[in-house]
Amino acid sequence: MAPKRPHDSENGPGGRAGASEKKSKGFSVGPANLPDGTYRRKTQKIKSDLIQKAKVKKAYAKIKAQEVASGKPKSVYDKYQEEDGANKDEDEEKSTELHPSRVAMLNKPPQSPEPAPRPERRPRDNEAKRKERKPRPSAFSKEMEIAEQRKKAAEARRKEREAKQKEREDMTRAKRPDQFGKRRLGRESTALLSRVQRMVG
């Protein structure tokens, strides 16, 4: 039998050594067989966000490594703290001097304070509002007004009826002849005059 031929993977450039240096395919988010639509776009967005975050982390790590290598790892917070400390020192130097008006007030001799006149007590806003507040209208105010109007109208009709009745009685009394059989024109005229006054007035 003939000797076996050695495999290319053992000796050649595309052998097992190349197999250990396999190129990575990347990573996947969600199932690979999603149809084009809402869910696929959502998974693609998640994947792009993850890639962006990884890039930011990588850039941050690079910058941090550079600062550590340079020997002065300082955060932005430390820089601001140093600036604030310098500003505080300047402020303290300035604040030791007194203002001229303050110095003049301190140099004045002390005077007995006069009691301030007490201001007259003003009513509070709530009290003023309470005084101005009108009584709450009744829930049946319209109905009560209508009932009042009806009462007045009924009273007016009753008075008119009574006045007419009185005129009729006066007229019948005035039309009766006197003891001699003659008409009483004076009585008739007063009855007619009162009737005319009622109609006009």
Score class of each variant (00 low, 15 high):
residue 1 M to L: 06
residue 1 M to A: 08
residue 12 G to W: 03
residue 13 P to F: 08
residue 18 G to Y: 06
residue 24 S to I: 03
residue 25 K to P: 06
residue 28 S to K: 09
residue 29 V to G: 07
residue 30 G to S: 08
residue 35 P to T: 06
residue 37 G to A: 03
residue 40 R to N: 10
residue 43 T to G: 05
residue 44 Q to P: 08
residue 52 Q to Y: 07
residue 52 Q to G: 05
residue 57 K to Q: 03
residue 60 Y to E: 14
residue 62 K to Y: 11
residue 65 A to W: 03
residue 67 E to G: 05
residue 69 A to V: 06
residue 69 A to R: 04
residue 70 S to T: 09
residue 72 K to F: 13
residue 75 S to I: 14
residue 80 Y to P: 06
residue 80 Y to D: 02
residue 85 G to H: 10
residue 87 N to H: 13
residue 87 N to F: 08
residue 90 E to H: 09
residue 90 E to C: 00
residue 94 K to N: 15
residue 95 S to Q: 13
residue 95 S to F: 13
residue 95 S to W: 08
residue 97 E to D: 13
residue 99 H to Y: 13
residue 105 M to I: 04
residue 113 P to L: 14
residue 116 A to C: 10
residue 117 P to S: 06
residue 122 R to Y: 07
residue 123 P to K: 06
residue 127 E to K: 03
residue 129 K to W: 07
residue 134 K to P: 04
residue 137 P to D: 12
residue 140 F to M: 02
residue 141 S to I: 09
residue 146 I to H: 05
residue 148 E to C: 05
residue 150 R to W: 02
residue 151 K to N: 15
residue 154 A to M: 15
residue 156 A to D: 09
residue 158 R to Q: 14
residue 160 E to D: 15
residue 161 R to Q: 15
residue 161 R to T: 12
residue 166 K to E: 08
residue 166 K to Q: 09
residue 175 K to A: 15
residue 177 P to A: 13
residue 178 D to K: 07
residue 178 D to V: 09
residue 179 Q to L: 12
residue 185 L to C: 04
residue 185 L to D: 10
residue 186 G to A: 15
residue 186 G to W: 03
residue 187 R to I: 02
residue 187 R to Y: 00
residue 192 L to H: 01
residue 194 S to I: 02
residue 195 R to Q: 14
residue 196 V to C: 01
residue 200 V to W: 10
residue 201 G to I: 13
